[in-house]
Each structure stands twice: as structure tokens, then as C-alpha cells.
């Protein structure tokens, strides 16, 4: 893929809005449901995921181009990528703990959980499938993360209110949460067809 600004902007727009990772493509639903009870924690999770997604896109691009393709081991992609992501999360955790303790504290328990967030593995696999170059992969990773953050923060603010409402017994807890998520997804459908060129 060519590295012109327009194409990168296109990736940015589609990753954040039209192909939002959670509400349109369904990557990362577990943390979306699990960590969206409060806006602060949702924001922390979103930041951590964005950070790891950009890094993982870069690292997995390198692993794929420099290791797997020359050795004709493309069928090992899934295993290799999940190992890269798991070790990356570990390294990021150790790095932050040592050098940026404030951020480390803010992210807390959410950092190790990112390994099993399918948004991270998903973005890496999509990068490879679409044949994105290095820069495009990183932009896609970072913007996918931003889209994730946008959706989870929006949803957390809705949920803080929904949890206080009085709804039918059978809908209490998870079902009403899902239905509010559905309405949010309906709103995001309005972005489909949005293009800048």
C-alpha cells in the first residue's frame, strides 16, 4: 500500500468511526462489557489498549516480514502473534512499572488482561490480511485503539445512568446492558458510508 497521507487519513477515519472495532466489527467485546462500569476505568483501559495495539502492530509486522515470510512459516502466524502480544504486554508492564509508575498505577489490573483482548490479535491479523505496510499497520493499530476508547468511554457514561434505572426483572444486569450497546451501535451505523475521498 502506498504511504500517502490520504490513504492514512482514510485508515484513520474508518478505524475510528465507520469500522469501529467494538460496535461494527465486534472485536474486544469482553473488556467492553467488563470494564465499562465507570468512565475513569474505561478511559484507562482504552488508553492501555491503544498503546498496546500500536506497539503490537509494529512488532507483529516486523515478526511477520523478517521471520515468518523468509522462513515460509506463514501458517504459524496465529501462534507467533499471540506470543508476541503476550510478551509485549509483559514488557510494557515492566517498563511502565519502572519508568512511568503513575501511568502503571492508573492502568493497574487492566494491563495484563489486554493479552486476551481480541481487538489486539484482531488488528494484527487484519493488518496482515489487508497487506498494510509498516506505517499503515501502526496507524491502523493506534486508530483502532482510539475507536475502542471512544466506544468504551461513551458506553460507560451511558451505563452509569442505565444501572440506576428501574427495568423489568428479567432484563436486569447483562441484558439491558447489551440492549443499550445495541442502541449505541445503531448510532454508529450512521457513520457508515462516510468517506473523505
Amino acid at each position: 500500500m502506498e504511504l500517502d497521507v490520504q490513504a492514512l487519513l482514510g485508515i484513520l477515519l474508518s478505524a475510528v468511526l465507520t469500522e469501529n472495532f467494538i460496535l461494527v466489527k465486534f472485536y474486544g467485546i469482553c473488556p467492553f462489557m467488563g470494564v465499562s462500569k465507570k468512565i475513569d476505568t474505561a478511559l484507562g483501559m482504552g488508553m492501555a489498549v491503544t498503546f498496546v495495539m500500536a506497539l503490537a502492530s509494529a512488532a507483529c509486522f516486523a515478526v511477520n516480514e523478517l521471520l515468518l515470510i523468509p522462513m515460509e512459516l506463514e501458517y504459524m502466524q496465529t501462534i507467533a502473534f499471540i506470543l508476541v502480544i503476550a510478551s509485549l504486554v509483559q514488557v510494557v508492564e515492566m517498563f511502565l512499572k519502572k519508568f512511568v509508575p503513575a501511568l502503571y498505577k492508573a492502568l493497574g489490573v487492566y494491563l495484563p488482561l489486554i493479552t486476551t483482548n481480541c481487538a489486539v490479535l484482531g488488528v494484527v491479523l487484519v493488518n496482515v490480511q489487508k497487506g498494510y505496510g509498516f506505517l499503515a499497520s501502526v496507524v491502523n493499530g493506534a486508530c483502532g485503539g482510539l475507536g475502542f476508547t471512544l466506544a468504551i468511554v461513551l458506553f460507560a457514561s451511558i451505563r452509569e445512568r442505565v444501572d440506576k434505572t428501574d427495568c423489568p426483572e428479567a432484563f436486569k444486569g447483562f441484558p439491558i446492558t447489551l440492549i443499550s450497546a445495541g442502541l449505541l451501535a445503531l448510532a454508529f451505523m450512521g457513520f457508515s458510508g462516510l468517506k473523505i475521498f
Partner: peptide, 9 residues
């Protein structure tokens, strides 16, 4: 996507 969330709910 909307239908997925609503149906599961």
C-alpha cells in the same frame, strides 16, 4: 451489528 446486541440482550 445492532441486531447482534439486541438479539443477545
Amino acid at each position: 451489528p445492532v441486531g447482534g446486541f439486541l438479539t443477545l440482550g
